[in-house]
């Protein structure tokens, strides 16, 4: 038997280890985005309760801030998810 054939038979079926670093970087991005959205929602709900417990003239500002935060987080997360999927 030709020695080259022996070498070929040894190397052809060697399984290739494909390490995808992109995929590895996407996982924490997904987790952080999901956690951010959940956090923004929980903050909004908590502020809604607290504004009833303690009411001051500045409550409107706080409610506006938290609503803008929720809106920006949701929109930003969706855009980011789109980029993560495209990458």
């Amino acid at each position: 038997m030709d020695p080259y054939d022996i070498i070929d038979s040894l190397t052809i079926d060697t399984p290739k280890v494909d390490f995808n670093l992109f995929g590895l970087l996407k996982i924490p991005a997904f987790i952080i985005l999901f956690a951010n959205m959940l956090f923004a929602l929980m903050m909004y709900l908590r502020v809604r309760i607290l504004s009833d417990t303690f009411s001051s003239p500045d409550n409107k500002i706080v409610k506006t801030v938290i609503l803008i935060h929720l809106f920006v987080t949701l929109i930003g997360s969706l855009i980011s998810l789109l980029f993560v999927v495209l990458s």
């Binding site: 991005a29 952080i32 951010n36 303690f54 938290i66 935060h69 987080t73 980011s80 980029f83 993560v84």
Partner: peptide, 27 residues
């Protein structure tokens, strides 16, 4: 794409931390 997405994640996280600090201070 990955770079833009990473910076959006970073900005959103920073924003959440700052808003959390503000709400904590206020309440």
């Amino acid at each position: 794409s990955l770079l833009v997405s990473m910076w959006i994640v970073c900005i959103l996280t920073c924003l959440s931390i700052l808003v959390y600090g503000f709400i904590r201070w206020f309440y």
